[in-house]
Simulated scan of single mutants.
Amino acid sequence: MYRLKSLVSRWLNDAFPGSCLLCGSDSPDALLCPACAADLPAPPSACCPQCAEQTTHGERCGACLTDPPHFDQTLAAFHYDFPVNRIIQALKYGHQLAVAKWLGYRLAALIKPGEQLIVPLPLHPERLRERGFNQSMEIARAVGKQLNLPVDHCSLFRNRPTQRQADLPLKERRKNVRGAFECTADMTGKNILLIDDVMTSGATLNECARVLKLHGAAHVTAVVAARALKH
């Protein structure tokens, strides 16, 4: 049933475009009308190159200097604020799969040549059955198609269900996902694009990057549609 719902939603998105997702005005060739697209909050011009948190001059933030994450770089298309939160929620909870394609194209524009493999953040099978699809996988497919890169959706997986990160205080999130991922492939020497929809604390992406590095990954770039900022 969930798979059928996802397929029907995908078909409707492709068959009946034409309205701006945010304001409902005519937008026959794009997800958003030009006015709404121009209002989307961009990430800060000066941010930490490792975690994309806002900094004064683009230097590494204190958190990354004190306790460096396992991912080497973060690329974000938007700042997670209104109305970007509505766009991502339309994908995540409204099954608006056209959003994934739209986000994927914007992320692809940020990525420089030299990457080798795309890995979407995995969902546990229980969560996947609940939602019907993996939003990170849908975004990853769009990025892979745009860049002509392979998408590995099998090697990295969740070995146990975890509490929703959004329901936990920031200090509890790293503990919640510790040991929740496994990798079955040899990633030796690979440059990996690890894709998710939103980065808040970065705990889940950090744990995934840790596992990928344990399996030999040379470089892991966290690629997210939106970055939630502390300030």
Rank of each mutant, 00 (worst) to 15 (best):
residue 52 A to C: 15
residue 54 Q to D: 10
residue 54 Q to A: 15
residue 55 T to Q: 13
residue 55 T to G: 13
residue 56 T to S: 14
residue 56 T to C: 11
residue 57 H to C: 09
residue 58 G to Q: 14
residue 58 G to T: 11
residue 62 G to I: 09
residue 63 A to K: 13
residue 64 C to E: 08
residue 64 C to V: 10
residue 67 D to F: 07
residue 68 P to F: 15
residue 69 P to C: 15
residue 72 D to A: 15
residue 76 A to E: 07
residue 77 A to E: 06
residue 78 F to H: 13
residue 80 Y to R: 07
residue 81 D to Y: 06
residue 81 D to A: 15
residue 82 F to A: 13
residue 82 F to I: 11
residue 83 P to K: 08
residue 83 P to D: 03
residue 84 V to T: 08
residue 87 I to L: 08
residue 88 I to E: 02
residue 88 I to P: 02
residue 90 A to H: 05
residue 91 L to A: 01
residue 92 K to S: 02
residue 93 Y to S: 00
residue 98 A to E: 01
residue 99 V to W: 04
residue 99 V to K: 04
residue 100 A to F: 01
residue 101 K to T: 02
residue 102 W to A: 00
residue 102 W to M: 01
residue 102 W to S: 00
residue 105 Y to W: 05
residue 112 K to M: 11
residue 113 P to R: 13
residue 114 G to D: 13
residue 116 Q to F: 02
residue 117 L to K: 14
residue 118 I to S: 12
residue 119 V to N: 11
residue 120 P to H: 07
residue 121 L to R: 05
residue 121 L to F: 08
residue 122 P to Y: 03
residue 123 L to F: 05
residue 126 E to N: 08
residue 129 R to M: 08
residue 135 Q to P: 10
residue 135 Q to A: 12
residue 139 I to E: 10
residue 140 A to G: 12
residue 141 R to Q: 09
residue 146 Q to S: 13
residue 148 N to I: 14
residue 148 N to F: 07
residue 150 P to Y: 08
residue 155 S to Y: 07
residue 156 L to E: 10
residue 157 F to T: 11
residue 158 R to P: 04
residue 158 R to L: 03
residue 160 R to L: 02
residue 162 T to G: 04
residue 170 L to S: 09
residue 171 K to Y: 03
residue 172 E to P: 05
residue 172 E to K: 14
residue 173 R to A: 03
residue 174 R to H: 03
residue 175 K to W: 00
residue 175 K to Q: 05
residue 176 N to K: 10
residue 176 N to C: 06
residue 177 V to P: 03
residue 177 V to Y: 01
residue 178 R to H: 02
residue 178 R to A: 09
residue 179 G to F: 02
residue 180 A to G: 03
residue 184 T to D: 03
residue 184 T to H: 04
residue 184 T to M: 00
